[in-house]
Design a protein around this nucleic acid. Sequence first.
DNA 1: AAAGCCGCCAACCGCCGGCCC
DNA 2: AGGGCCGGCGGTTGGCGGCTT
Length: 241
Amino acid sequence: MGKSPRWSKEGLNRGAWSPHEDKLLTSYIETHGLGKWSHVPKRAGLNRCGKSCRLRWLNYLRPNIKRGNITLDEEELIIRLHNLLGNRWSLIAGRLPERTDNEIKNYWNTTLAKKLRIQSSSQSQIIQTKASRCKNVVILQPPYPNNNYQNSNIDRDMSLASNHSTKAQLEDEICGKNQLFAFNHESSMGGKGGEHLGAIDEQVMVNEWSNTPSGFEVDDDNQAVDFDSLALLLLDSGDWP
DNA sequence: AAAGCCGCCAACCGCCGGCCC
DNA sequence: AGGGCCGGCGGTTGGCGGCTT
């Protein structure tokens, strides 16, 4: 399964791993432990790049990986985590220790996304965006006037949010709700844009988060909060959706 | 039985941040 | 300070195999 070798990059093997390669990698790591992936191929006698070895180990060879048959409980957890965290697969996988981020991502893209699309055609949508580098969360000051959110306010918030979402997206999201928005402030510096993580529209989250006196690093200027701290707080509380 | 279609998922790619020199 | 290296991440690709026609 997977890609077969289409071309050779610097003479390295590509595509599916053979049982022999798996054995070499496993035995090397069992003997020497993890570390310095760039050195692994040479020392293990593999004609692969370090990244490929790392991926193979983490997603397939390492012990305690549960494969296939995502249970209903796991599925439910993935959906809830995705609602909260967006496409942050590594964080989601962190809550399902025996699953890999790659497996969860694949399961989402092939099964859950489809299922949810059918289920939620009339419900609010989670916006799918690149969220990989999201570090901070911006609170757009609630409450907004219900359904009549003025363009000027949207413009203001767009500015606040460092132009990271289209106006239409933002408008869709904010009308009539108290919501959290996550944007990547790091990228705003680099001018790359488009890092909307998605909305968290549960009042309990807003309250829990904004009333928490400690645990977050709040930037006075843009009201940014350390996202991982927020995620951990919400995950550890029993109140998130 | 054969051909075409489609879903699954392993693996690759490019980007980014952190670390070291 | 800044350039290079490395590891980690999410997005995407494309081969395999099962299903349908």
